[in-house]
Amino acid sequence: MSDCTSLELPFPHRRSPHQAGAAAHHRLWLDRHRQLTAGITEPAYEHWDVSELAAFCYPEAGPDELGLAADLLGFYFLFDDQFDTELGQHPAEVARICDRLCGITHGTAAFAATTPFGSSAPSTSPVPSASSAPPTPSATEHAFADLWRRSQRGMSARWRARAAYNWEWYFASHPAEAAGRAFAELPDRESYLVLRRGTAAMETLFDMIERLGHFEVPQSAFHHPVLRRLRQLAADIPSFSNDVRSYPLEAPRGDVYNLVMIVQQERGCPADEASAVVLAEAQLMINQFAELRLQLADVYNQLELDAAQRGAVQRYADGLAAWLAGYLRWEGRTGRYRAG
């Protein structure tokens, strides 16, 4: 397979000085939500280096914020991995799980508002026998409710609405991915991109740049074409690289939403050649990202942003670059994508 480390970035990765504290915090959080890790051994999980990913991707975050980042990243991995089992081939069951999690972000899951902060164990009280009684919240729901409450702290209603939408996009993409596994239908490139941009959860991760930094990007800049393009590139590049890394694990189990497989079908070529093509596309996107960053000064002038607004936009763009550099650095070191 082609080597993802061949990707060249015009900016270096950095590491937060608070990684050790985030790692200790994350271990305690996992202890409180231990049912999340039922499918993996502790040594194997430690080999993923989740706290290192947080430290690489959010190098400016303070100690408490980096702990939240580590918890979120751990949740993504553990939530996603449950669908690598037989469960992941049953779209209706996946939809049921994801709909209940979406309900937490939209305030329709009553327990999310009443569960004490940090609580993890599902309720052990008897469930009423009436057919209308809601199901007992799962360990996954309790863990996500905790993360959602912490993530909202100090943020505006506008940010919360956007974050809720992005979480819904992430969760609601999983049933379609499950259908792809169940029917083993290789998607075309456009369908792949639509679904991958949902299941990769990148928009939720980019929302956390603002949350962890305690600032918000002005609306006019957030939706400006330059920033939207920067965000899309920063989302797609790791997905392309990850597809190359994870291909040896995904191909045997029938996961079809992988760009290496799609390029193989497009070109009728072996996996090594398809991987090289995917990485070449990623490198082109990295170059585009660097060029777009140079246009931010023009955006500030065009939108007549004041000094504070310019500072917020620059912090966000720098956060996207930090995420990109940090993720690619971590991906080359983690044991998560190594077979065996």
Results as ranks from 00 to 15, higher is better:
Trp29Gln: 02
Trp29Tyr: 08
Leu30Thr: 00
Arg32Glu: 13
His33Lys: 03
Arg34Ala: 15
Arg34Thr: 05
Gln35Asp: 12
Leu36Thr: 02
Leu36Ala: 05
Thr37Cys: 15
Ala38Asn: 06
Ala38Asp: 09
Ala38His: 04
Gly39Tyr: 08
Gly39Ser: 00
Ile40Gln: 06
Thr41Val: 02
Glu42Gln: 15
Pro43Gly: 06
Pro43Trp: 03
Pro43Leu: 06
Ala44Arg: 15
Ala44Met: 14
Tyr45Glu: 07
Glu46Met: 04
Glu46Ile: 02
Glu46Arg: 14
His47Glu: 14
His47Trp: 08
His47Val: 03
Trp48Tyr: 14
Trp48Ala: 02
Asp49Ala: 15
Asp49Arg: 13
Val50Gly: 08
Ser51Lys: 00
Glu52Leu: 15
Glu52Asn: 07
Leu53Ala: 08
Ala54Asn: 01
Ala54Thr: 05
Ala55Asp: 03
Phe56Gly: 00
Phe56Gln: 12
Phe56Arg: 13
Cys57Trp: 01
Cys57Pro: 03
Pro59Glu: 10
Glu60Met: 06
Glu60Leu: 13
Glu60Gly: 08
Glu60Gln: 13
Glu60Val: 11
Ala61Cys: 09
Ala61Thr: 10
Gly62Arg: 05
Pro63Ser: 14
Asp64Asn: 10
Asp64Pro: 05
Leu66Met: 01
Leu66Asn: 01
Leu66Cys: 09
Gly67Ala: 14
Ala69Pro: 02
Ala69Thr: 03
Ala70Glu: 02
Ala70Asn: 06
Leu72Ser: 02
Leu72Phe: 15
Leu73Arg: 03
Gly74Ser: 12
Gly74Ala: 10
Phe75Gly: 03
Phe75Tyr: 15
Phe75Ile: 03
Tyr76Cys: 10
Leu78Gln: 11
Leu78Asn: 04
Leu78Thr: 14
Asp80Met: 08
Asp80Ser: 10
Asp80Cys: 07
Gln82Phe: 02
Gln82Glu: 12
Phe83Ile: 03
Thr85Ile: 00
Thr85His: 13
Glu86His: 14
Glu86Cys: 01
Glu86Lys: 12
Glu86Arg: 15
Glu86Ile: 04
Glu86Pro: 13
Leu87His: 10
Gly88Arg: 11
Gln89Asn: 09
His90Tyr: 08
Ala92Asn: 02
Ala92His: 12
Glu93His: 05
Glu93Ile: 12
Glu93Asp: 11
Val94Ser: 02
Val94Pro: 03
Ala95Asp: 09
Ile97Thr: 15
Ile97Gly: 11
Cys98Glu: 14
Cys98Phe: 10
Asp99Leu: 14
Asp99Cys: 10
Asp99Phe: 06
Arg100Lys: 12
Arg100Tyr: 01
Leu101Asn: 03
Ile104Trp: 04
Ile104Glu: 00
Thr105Trp: 04
Thr105Asn: 01
His106Gly: 07
Gly107Ser: 06
Gly107Gln: 00
Thr108Gln: 03
Ala110Val: 03
Phe111Leu: 00
Phe111His: 05
Ala112Thr: 01
Ala112Tyr: 01
Ala113Asp: 07
Thr114Glu: 14
Thr115Val: 08
Thr115Asp: 05
Phe117Thr: 05
Gly118Arg: 05
Ser119Lys: 07
Ser119Leu: 15
Ser120Lys: 00
Ser120Thr: 06
Pro122Glu: 07
Ser123Tyr: 02
Ser123Leu: 07
Thr124Lys: 09
Thr124Asn: 01
Thr124His: 09
Ser125Lys: 11
Ser125Thr: 08
Ser125Leu: 15
Ser125Tyr: 06
Pro126Glu: 06
Val127His: 13
Val127Tyr: 06
